Amino acid sequence: MSIQHFRVALIPFFAAFCLPVFAHPETLVKVKDAEDQLGARVGYIELDLNSGKILESFRPEERFPMMSTFKVLLCGAVLSRVDAGQEQLGRRIHYSQNDLVEYSPVTEKHLTDGMTVRELCSAAITMSDNTAANLLLTTIGGPKELTAFLHNMGDHVTRLDRWEPELNEAIPNDERDTTMPAAMATTLRKLLTGELLTLASRQQLIDWMEADKVAGPLLRSALPAGWFIADKSGAGERGSRGIIAALGPDGKPSRIVVIYTTGSQATMDERNRQIAEIGASLIKHW
């Protein structure tokens, strides 16, 4: 067993022997301040990774656009098919120029040779490549099948209805392509620590998230040296922004954090800054 596999296998073990965790309302004060600064709703939840206990939450059962955070769930569904012998990570998928959609920095470079399922998941999570996500959605049967996968996990809230990039439209009061912070946090925890996926697939999923290259201005910008984070960000229309993450000190994750916002007129930089400040408060009061 590799060191990384050992780390993920012992996530519940280490967490069980940690000192009790206590909620700190100071972080919620910052979440509410972010709402004021952005002029928009902000949803927040913080779960203990081992027990699933909610440590703090704000608007945990209000719907927010998922945006690209759905790509972690998508690759979880792909990995479940791999575990069941219905898919192979090494299978190569070929596609054409007509398949390319807006923001496809990886797939646009491989029109000639195609990409493997493993490479597509890596591109979808680490670079948020939209064509990679659409190609992977095709392998599982489309958005409705991802929703069905989530329902089978016990998540009857999260739903995907459309493809990239239309799913980022974020129309107010439109339930399409949305989740709730509580539902997303619980589902992410199941994917990373539950028995739904094999140990190898859980490790692969967290490795992809740990290698995320496009979430630097968010929670990662607030992390002290030595902290662990595996995350996936999302951005959408109407001032929408979000991030889902597993993080913790001492090089291992111990909490799940989900943050979503929508309806702001603020710039992307300002949305990023507010999420980073929430992260800084979380870490300060850990």
Rank of each mutant, 00 (worst) to 15 (best):
D250A: 03
P105R: 04
L167C: 10
E26Y: 12
A148G: 07
I93R: 15
E26F: 14
T198G: 06
S221H: 05
L28W: 02
V29Y: 04
S96Y: 06
T198F: 04
M67R: 01
F228G: 14
N173K: 08
A77V: 10
A185L: 08
S281H: 10
P165G: 08
M127S: 13
T147S: 05
A211Y: 15
E61F: 12
L55P: 04
L79N: 11
R59Y: 15
Q86R: 10
E210L: 14
S51N: 10
M66D: 00
G142I: 02
F58P: 00
Q97S: 06
P172I: 03
R238N: 03
E26C: 08
D48A: 05
T158D: 01
A123L: 09
S233L: 10
L135I: 06
A211P: 13
G234E: 01
D161R: 04
I54L: 09
T27R: 08
L28M: 08
I93N: 15
V101K: 06
Q203M: 03
L205I: 13
Q274Y: 02
G142Q: 06
H156T: 13
T179L: 01
R118P: 12
R159E: 14
D207C: 03
L55F: 09
K213W: 06
A225D: 13
K190E: 14
E195Q: 09
K30P: 08
D99V: 03
S254G: 04
G43N: 00
G216N: 03
R41Q: 02
E175G: 09
A132E: 00
S96H: 06
T126K: 06
M67G: 11
I278E: 00
Q203C: 02
N152A: 06
L137M: 10
A225Y: 12
V78A: 12
T126A: 09
K232M: 00
L47S: 09
I229Q: 09
H24D: 08
D155C: 06
T179H: 00
A34P: 06
V101A: 04
E166M: 15
R159H: 08
E195K: 06
H94M: 03
S240T: 13
P65D: 01
H151G: 11
T187Q: 15
V106P: 03
H151L: 09
L150K: 01
I278G: 00
L167H: 04
V117E: 09
A123V: 06
R220S: 08
S122R: 06
V117P: 07
S51V: 11
W227F: 09
E102Y: 11
L100D: 05
E164M: 00
L150D: 02
R92K: 15
I206G: 12
A266M: 07
R189T: 06
A230T: 08
D113F: 04
E56F: 07
Y95S: 07
L199C: 12
E270R: 02
G142D: 07
T139A: 11
Y95E: 05
R162H: 12
A34Q: 09
Q86N: 14
D161N: 07
C75I: 10
R41L: 12
G226D: 11
S128G: 05
N130D: 11
T262Y: 08
Y95K: 03
I140F: 12
K284G: 05
M115N: 04
D129T: 00
M127W: 12
S80K: 15
L205Y: 04
L146K: 01
L74F: 01
L55A: 12
I171T: 15
T186P: 11
L219A: 10
K30E: 10
E175F: 08
M209E: 01
V258A: 02
R273A: 07
V101M: 07
A230Q: 03
E119S: 11
A200D: 05
L136F: 01
E35M: 14
L120Y: 03
L188P: 00
L28E: 05
A235Y: 10
Q86E: 05
K30R: 13
K213E: 03
A225T: 03
E237M: 04
T178Q: 11
